[in-house]
Design a protein around this nucleic acid. Structure first.
Lengths: 226, 226
DNA sequence: TCTCGTATGTACCAGACGGTGAGTTACGGA
DNA sequence: TCCGTAACTCACCGTCTGGTACATACGAGA
């Protein structure tokens, strides 16, 4: 799994003398730029983010952004790729194989729920990228293997559930994943307009348990109804 | 209220001589600016849209944008308000009262599905506004009465369904609306990243019927499962 | 200790950007 | 027919923006 912290090991082979504080450190500088840029792009969108603003929040200078990334757009792409890479690493931890189908399904939905709630910044980046029609993400290596984990686990659960005669068979794993994603993403991505219109904060901790159960009930009922 | 169509009647009392083509027409100019701005903001987001670009696509000049709206931000707010106003008008047409609860529920979900699919530009504006944390929409009069129709109709259906012993009673109308909205909005708003990752175009006409049925099954199963 | 490439800082630029000052013309009422 | 105002045109402005030329300091290897 990718270590989330900038100061992680960068195995150059020798795990020997690691200077605690170097005045010059390409990796640290790069990581710092990425971290600040991620926050800034997630906060204001691609067009709304300012290279100067990112630079001001850096311990280094704007020049370094261009030195390491080449330009605003390439920096944005790097931010996206890092974000997707981290998410993939996290998603692979799911282990619900040992549960019986209905419980496994509910558990998977719940974990996805938790996962999305824990990464609102990522959801914002995804929304922003959708505004741009995913043109920066198209053909990115960061997507490789991103689809597999979520859908594979789900496929296995559905297969077992169908074998036991518990689940309907005209809904495929991707359909179910779409429903779960829709619910989880919507809660975060559309939080503000939903709140403005319906006066409900979908992320209000007080209703979290209810929302989580709602999602579980939803997918379980859907699959167990003929 | 401002007439939505540029060439509509402008009831000056006398319905008499209506100049078919005036060289100067405040309402037409305003409407044209709004239309072009709507397309531009929906396409590129608030920060990404350019006042000059909007002006170039106008038969009038940039100066008129400032004359009628005051500035970029006010223009954006006007675009949002008009868009929400139009959506409200459309939503009030739903009539499913005469159907039995399960059929009514499925019909309402289907109509919402159709409705969202028919207005991708609106969904984009909503996504954009969420990126900005709905700050432009906060306290806007355009929201007044927007929540009522959707939820009221749903409430009535649920109430009838519960009275008939068909529906569970621990899921409220807003929960159901949230689920329906999540599904419908997600399909459009996250179309591009979903496609990039899972290679499924959620708006592909070939799978439209399946998706529409999926949503109906989802909410019906959820409410009819104890 | 020297050397050379990588990493960094400073100062600056050209063009795009949102916005405006000031004058001009069409229109509708008297 | 004339006049006052709403609607409109044109040229312009100051600032911000992404991006860069150039000088320089560090530090690993010889």
């Amino acid at each position: 799994m990718t270590a989330p912290r900038p100061d992680s090991e960068l195995g150059t082979g020798t795990a020997a003398v690691r200077p605690v504080e170097r005045t010059r450190d390409a990796d640290r500088t790069r990581a710092e730029i990425l971290a600040v840029a991620t926050a800034e792009f997630a906060d204001r969108g691609y067009a709304g983010a300012r290279v100067n603003e990112i630079a001001d929040k850096l311990s280094t200078t704007k020049r370094m952004i261009y030195y390491y990334f080449g330009g605003k757009e390439q920096l944005y792409v790097a931010v996206l790729e890092q974000a997707y890479g981290r998410i993939r690493a996290l998603e692979q931890q799911v282990d619900v194989e040992h549960l019986e189908p209905v419980a496994a399904l509910r558990e998977l939905a719940g974990l996805t729920f938790d996962h999305h709630e824990a990464h609102p910044e990522f959801i914002r980046l995804v929304s922003i990228e959708n505004i741009h029609r995913a043109e920066h993400l198209a053909g990115s290596p960061a997507l490789a293997g991103l689809a597999a984990p979520a859908v594979d686990v789900l496929s296995a659960i559905l297969q077992r559930g169908r074998a036991d005669g518990l689940f309907r068979d005209d809904v495929d794993a991707l359909d179910v994943h779409q429903v779960i994603s829709a619910f989880c993403v919507f809660r975060t991505a559309n939080r503000h307009t939903f709140r403005a219109i319906f006066d409900r904060d979908m992320l209000d901790p007080a209703t979290r348990a209810h929302q989580r159960r709602l999602l579980g009930d939803l997918v379980v009922a859907h699959l167990t109804t003929r």
